[in-house]
């Protein structure tokens, strides 16, 4: 991830910020310029709730660059309470204790250090809550 890309996406990664179309009210994550339905750019800021549930998950043992030191780690699809889905790591848990449907809360964590420009990439990871 480069400097401009990091800057461009940090509101979504840091704040769970997305967009809501002012015309058709469709919610989007991450931030995007145009509504896919209306093709219109009249979008307003929408901060997603940090609560959701696990849709599916896996334990990754062979990681790409920048994630090698974290293996094994849990990673999966989370559906936020608003119905929008995202992919992220699932932390502070053994995979044997995770279940589909389990409630999670998104937390702010370090994702990785980008290999080319040394940027520390922060973002969200899911923390199981009970």
């Amino acid at each position: 991830m480069g400097v401009a890309e990091s800057w461009r996406t940090n509101q979504s990664r840091y704040l769970m910020e997305g967009r809501k179309c002012t015309k058709c009210k469709t919610l989007y994550f991450p931030i995007r310029q145009h509504c896919a339905k209306c093709m219109d750019d009249s979008m307003e800021r929408y901060i997603f709730d940090t609560k959701g549930k696990i849709v599916e998950f896996t334990r990754i043992e062979e990681a790409p660059q920048g994630f090698e030191l974290m293996v094994p780690y849990n990673y999966g699809i989370v559906e936020l309470d608003e119905g929008v889905r995202i992919s992220c790591q699932i932390i502070d848990s053994y995979s044997k204790d995770l279940e589909v449907g389990m409630p999670v809360e998104m937390t702010f964590r370090l994702l990785r250090k980008s290999e080319d420009q040394g940027i520390l990439q922060y973002g969200f990871k899911a923390l199981p809550i009970e």
């Binding site: 896996t58 994630f67 790591q89 994702l111």
Partner: peptide, 16 residues
């Protein structure tokens, strides 16, 4: 950005 950068891999997709 929203899969690989979050830690996802091709294998993790098929694993799920």
């Amino acid at each position: 950005m929203w899969e690989s950068n979050m830690g996802g891999t091709l294998a993790s997709g098929f694993a799920m």
